[in-house]
Design a protein around this nucleic acid. Structure first.
Lengths: 223, 223
DNA sequence: CAGAAATTTGACCAGTTGGAAAAAATGTTA
DNA sequence: TAACATTTTTTCCAACTGGTCAAATTTCTG
């Protein structure tokens, strides 16, 4: 059973000696990425269209495709940029300090990310909901290693009696979940809090509540 | 400037005396809804196609459209069904009991929902990420009222010294966030836990961890 | 300013999408 | 089983989709 050789995928793209990236290129690429973040973070990869992104970026579709030859290219780039920003707080989580300030500031930082980069959070959430088709390797690799490392730090603190003995992985999950909630479920949070309490102050309220929850729990000490 | 009268939208649909729904209708509708839940929960409304759903349901597109004349109809129905299931645990949250068993069982129940109805959770998450275009009224209405009511119960317990004084709204958010995380971010949870700890047992681990966190926090009592 | 390089545009295309219409097939029931 | 209602399939459509291509325009550089 003979088979005609499959059509070679146009080898990588020439990119002759990769030209030095002009001012216009940087500007337009940033414009596109910003617009694409708006669209992808709301509609996911499948639900977003190049036309939508081009319109949001104020340019024609072929013009956009001049900078990013395919839709997936833009998405890949956004995911990579996002992961960098997103994992920074966890990377800073250090064995040096004491658990209280360390955990407290980790929560603060993650909450600030939700406040300042909500679109990135939603982009990531969308990717997870879809089963991480373009991120799975990274989750199993870099992320797992990073979490394993930080979990060990937490366990050390538990051994030293500085923290209640508990599952360090689920501890990390619960910090992720509670902080990212304010970006991913923003509409719900606002709707439930109503106009008065749903303003910018909600992040300060959340920070105070979460610090308290994570450090002391809900039950009075002398229970 | 005269304008031709706009084309009347085909008045509602006759549905002559709404026929009594046959056996086949029920069966096929359930089949479609199940398939649609698979697709919508992963790709969101925009990202899902009728073809995909029809294929997943094992029928042709026009056949599917015979039961649900438009895509949005299916989605609307799924959202309504989901909200019913999803809010049941909160409705059961009662002022009668004591805070400890009440909160503990709320967490358990929400976690069981994430385990048993992950697709519904993701459908809801998708809707929130998109800014709740088809759910917003419900969030501001029914949901807000329900949460207001339960927040009052929590405040009563705080007044009685049975709970630490803290923000009851953010308390509810944190329970939602931590429990739904196991459905919405399932891939991530599994990837990070690895093959051994990422099995079915992860829900039991999570339940134990979360009960502990919410009741006692992370710091040892005699801090 | 001329020429080259970079950027933008308009026309186009094949495949997909949500959906309509009518004919064909299959139940249901008197 | 004939007459009727329900269900399914076939065919079709206009709009949208991701993407190509060559020509036109703009920007940069000597």
């Amino acid at each position: 059973m003979t088979v005609t050789s499959p059509p070679e995928k146009a080898a990588k793209k020439p990119k002759k000696a990769s030209r030095p990236v002009t001012r216009i290129q940087r500007e337009k690429q940033d414009l596109i990425l910003d617009a694409a973040l708006d669209v992808f973070s709301v509609h996911g990869f499948r639900g977003a269209t190049i036309d939508q992104i081009a319109e949001a970026a104020g340019m024609s579709k072929p013009n956009l495709l001049y900078y990013f030859p395919r839709k997936e290219e833009i998405h890949k780039r956004l995911i990579a940029d996002m992961l960098d920003i997103w994992l920074a707080p966890l990377r800073e989580f250090s064995a040096e300090g004491d658990p209280v300030p360390e955990i407290r500031s980790y929560i603060r930082r993650k909450l600030e990310m939700s406040r300042d980069f909500p679109r990135q959070s939603r982009l990531f959430a969308n990717e997870m909901l879809q089963g991480a088709p373009r991120t799975f390797d990274m989750l199993e690799g870099d992320l797992k290693r990073l979490v394993d490392e930080k979990a060990k730090i937490l366990e050390t603190w538990m051994d030293q009696g500085k923290l209640n003995r508990t599952d360090p992985y689920h501890l990390i999950f619960s910090i992720w979940a509670t902080t990212q909630h304010y970006a991913d479920f923003d509409v719900q949070v606002r709707a439930v809090l109503g106009p008065e309490r749903g303003g910018e102050g909600r992040f300060e309220d959340a920070a105070r509540y979460l610090e308290n929850l994570f450090l002391h729990g809900l039950l009075p000490k002398k229970s």
